[in-house]
Each structure stands twice: as C-alpha cells, then as structure tokens.
Design a protein around this nucleic acid. Structure first.
Length: 464
RNA sequence: GCUCCCUUCGUCUAGAGGCCUAGGACACGGCCCUCUCAAGGCUGGAACACGGGUUCGACUCCCGUAGGGAGCGCCA
C-alpha cells in the first residue's frame, strides 16, 4: 500500500454522540492516511433523516477536531467528491440504482414488514437461516403493476447471484471466503426512497476513491454483500480491515453503565486529547513504544499488521496513566495555559508559576489542581481531622516561633532555626497548619506560591 | 438454527516452529529516595482456554471441544 495515494475515511452516522469505539476507528483511519501522506475523508452518513439530529452532526465534527483528527475532505471543507453528506447524494444513488435496474440486478419488493417478519419466524422455527425468501424476485410486470395500483410502495432488492464465492483479503483477518448462497437478496433502497447502508456506504467509498477502510468487526460479514454490489457496478472496492470491537471491563460492548464512554464526557472530565489518543492508539493496536506519542509519531508507528483481532477492553486506569504522562510532559508555559482557567485572575507576578511548579507533579486532572488552588489561595481553609490533631500536638510555642520567623519570601531555614525542630517534627505540623491536610506537594515550593501574610495568619491560628 | 470472527499475566499487548525457564506497559506488592503524598529508581507476584494430532521440537501449523462476539434487518 505504498505506490498510489492512500485514501481513508471515517463515516459516522450522526445519531448519537461520538463514542470511544468510533473515535478509535476514526483515529486508526486518520493515522493510516497520515502514515502514507494520503487523504482522510469525513463523510456523514445521514440517510436516515428521522434519526439524524443536526446538533449531532456538529458534535461529531467538533469532537473529531478536538481529538486533532483533521480531515482533508468533508462537509465543511468540500473536496473533489462533494457533497460529503449522504442526505445530499440522492441523485447519485439514483443514477447507480438505474444502472443496476438496467442490468436487471434489482427488483421491487412489495413485502410488508409484517409479512417479512412472519416469513423469518417460520424459517427460524424450521431451523433455517432467516433469509429473504425471494417472494418478489420473479414477479411479472403485470403483478408489479397490480401491486402498485393497490398502493403498495416497493423497496428495491439486489439480486444476489447464486452459487458464487466471494473472496477477499481482509487487512487484519487475512483471506476470507463467503458463499453467495448464504446471502439473501438484500434491500438497497428503502420504501421511502432512501438508499440503504449497504449500498450508499459501499458506493460512496468507491466513488470517493477510498482505498482503505478500517471499520468495526461487525461489518466483516457485510463485506461480501458490498463487494457484490460494487462488482455489479464495475467499481473498485476499497481494501477493508476489520478491527475488533471495544468493550467494557465486563467484556460487554461499551455502554453507559461502564461510566464515561463518550469523547465529550471524557473531555468534560478533564482528559487531554493526547491522553485519550495514546490510550486509543494502544487498544487493539500494539506498539513497542511505551512513551507518550504525538499524533505524527503515532502515524509513523501505526501499522495494520499490528492490529489486534480480539476485542479490547477500555481501561480507565490506563487512560489515567497517559493523562499523567501528558501532565508531566508539560512545559511551564504549557502547564500555565492548561491551568489558567482555574487560577485566580489577579495573582501577583511569579505566583501562578510558583503554584504550578509546586503542584504539577501531584496532579493528573485539572480538577486536582483546583483543589490545591483553593487550599493555597482561598480563605477560610478547611482542615481535615488528622491534620488538626497534628497541628495541635505541635503546641502553640512552635507556631508562635514559626510565625515570628515568616518573611517574604518565606524561608524555611529561618523557620527551622526559630523553632529548633527538623525533619518530620518540623514539616508535618507546618503542613497541617498551612494546608489543612497531611498529604500534598512538597512544602517548600508550595510556600513559595503562598503570600507571606497568609502563611503568618495560618500559623498564628495555632499559636495560642 | 446457519455463516463468519475471536481466545497469551487482572487489563493493553510482544510472539509469524527452536531466540520462551513466554518479553514490555498499566494496575497491584516490596525496597530506595523523602516532611507526607505524588513523581522517579530498583524489585516481586502474575498468562499461552481445553483436548487431540503433525514434528526431533509447538504459544506458534492442523482438527476438534468449550467459552465469547458478529451477521443473517426497509439500523447504520
């Protein structure tokens, strides 16, 4: 896959928020395109008007953009194969439908949902695969006309050839072979005139020049149908690679009860795109590199050969690890940009830098920093019980001496001399009185961020 | 029911017949560092689903079994 330009695509149906599974699929396709200096296409599969919500189209786009997965062609930028929304491609579908009709490869089906359901049940009961029985396959023109007169609107079915084998190489599963006899005539245009997924999806991939598609495992057995369709149209199918599904900790498909599983939810929870992408990158894909990777580095390391065939479990603990890696990779300036929204706006020069330097090794989400921001900058301070006890045990004399030695900036060595204590006996009461808790970032850097007046006041509180 | 897919430490995975007394990462335990926590360094426990073949030799190949998943939709 090196010579010609690689074109991949992500084709979400905007019927819900961008899910982690879809986000990973998008990432893989993006990475594959970037690795080969190819193009990444975004196509919105909104043929089902009833289920499409305009806000979702927006949301998918902004989630993708937030992830950093920029597309080269899509509804908003246009491109050589516009339009990129299936709801606007009806004329194109019609044109290819007519070609199939001319070749007698489609036929109208007048069966009602009820009739189909009854037939399916009968087949199931008889131990047969529930396939379309071919009721309308051989209707004469007269019979068709009669049904139309009765007011029955037909769907269109593709005439699946009998007794042929469909063979192809899956990018991740290797050689595949399906018998056409296991496939019933399937609907390619619905009664309401909308193109059905199997048709519009395959046709658009071919028409848009898509060369490689990484998609969910659940499409593997759809692939022979789509190949049949494209073959009938003399169009070139892309190479498909079917990636394992993403599941929750219990092995069941990711859903609400697994906690936050949407890109938006994770973003709102404070995770960085780098963290999410790094975790997704290693879910169902392996790499020898254990460090935090940028998107270009991921593209370089990405390889369809390293795609896993078994389902992968989404693991919040590992996501958290990448988030922590990301936090620790931040420069002072970047950290400042990240934490700026939670810092008090009117801080004297140097103080926010001091605060960030003190707190950064201890936090993973911005929320953690907010807690320390309150401890350092807000009044009144709330004390945890064990901290209160430790402070009281140190005795008033200790705090009186310490408070007397507070200068600006606060010099811990001066306090040490004044109190005559060292080690834990020195630090722990100070920590307790100043932060209200027994655990936290190193005291010296933390003090550097705290105004001297506040330090003195908090010490004095225990001086009598 | 039929067709197809999958199965290595708790999790993500390396492994393409001998390099495997199965490697790495996350998580977990211990030690070091240390005012605490975190970070960091070192370290420990932890897996080839099962049963048959093939082979001098199988995690790797073949066949079964078990378990999980998908498809068989006028949903995408």
């Amino acid at each position: 896959m090196s010579s010609a330009t690689v074109v991949t695509r992500f084709a979400p149906s905007p019927s819900g928020a961008l899910h982690l599974g879809n986000a990973r699929t998008a990432l893989f396709n993006y990475l594959l395109a970037r690795k080969h200096q190819g193009r990444f296409v975004l196509r919105i599969e909104d043929t089902d008007v009833a289920r499409t919500r305009e806000v979702m189209v927006e949301a998918v786009g902004s989630d993708l953009a937030w992830l950093g997965l920029t597309w080269d062609e899509g509804p908003d930028h246009g491109g050589p194969h516009a339009p990129y929304r299936q709801s606007q491609r009806g004329a194109l579908y019609q044109q290819y439908l007519e070609r199939l009709d001319r070749d007698h490869l489609v036929y109208p089906c007048f069966c009602s949902p009820l009739e189909l359901d009854v037939a399916r049940r009968a087949q199931q009961a008889a131990g047969q695969p529930p396939r379309y029985a071919g009721t309308c396959r051989a209707l004469s023109m007269a019979q068709r006309a009669e049904r139309v007169v009765q007011g029955r609107a037909p769907s269109l079915r593709f005439r699946v050839p009998v007794g042929v084998w469909i063979e192809f190489d899956d990018l991740v599963h290797g050689p595949q072979r399906f018998s056409s006899d296991a496939i019933g005539d399937f609907i390619i245009r619905r009664e309401d005139g909308a193109a059905a997924f199997l048709f519009s999806n395959a046709l658009d991939d071919a028409l848009m020049g898509v060369t490689h598609v990484l998609r969910g495992d659940d499409h593997l057995s759809n692939t022979p149908r789509q190949r049949l369709l494209l073959q009938a149209l003399a169009l070139t199918p892309p190479q498909y690679g079917h990636v394992s599904l993403l599941v929750g900790d219990d092995g069941a498909p990711l859903s609400k009860r697994h906690g936050a599983t949407g890109v938006r939810e994770l973003r709102d929870a404070g995770y960085a795109t780098a963290a999410l992408c790094n975790h997704l990158f290693r879910l169902g894909h392996s790499t020898p590199r254990n460090e935090l990777l940028s998107l270009p580095q991921m593209a370089e390391a990405f390889d369809v050969k390293h795609l896993q065939r078994a389902p992968a479990h989404f693991d919040p603990a590992q996501l958290r690890h990448w988030q922590s890696e990301w936090v620790h990779s931040l420069s002072g300036e970047q950290a400042r940009g990240w934490l700026d929204p939670i810092l008090p706006p009117d801080l004297p020069p140097g103080q926010s830098e001091a605060f960030i330097a003190a707190v950064l090794p201890n936090i993973v989400l911005a929320e953690d920093a907010r807690q320390w921001q309150q401890i350092v900058f807000d009044e009144p301070l709330s004390y945890e019980e064990p901290a209160l006890r430790t402070a009281r045990e140190a005795g008033p004399a200790f705090f009186a001496a310490a408070a007397g030695a507070v200068g600006s900036p606060t010099d811990l060595a001066a306090l040490r001399t004044a109190t005559g204590r060292k080690g834990a006996a020195f630090f722990m009461p100070l920590r307790a009185a100043l932060t209200g808790r027994l655990h936290g970032p190193e005291l010296a850097p933390l003090l550097a961020a705290m105004p001297a007046e506040r330090v003195r006041a908090r010490l004095l509180r225990f001086a009598h």
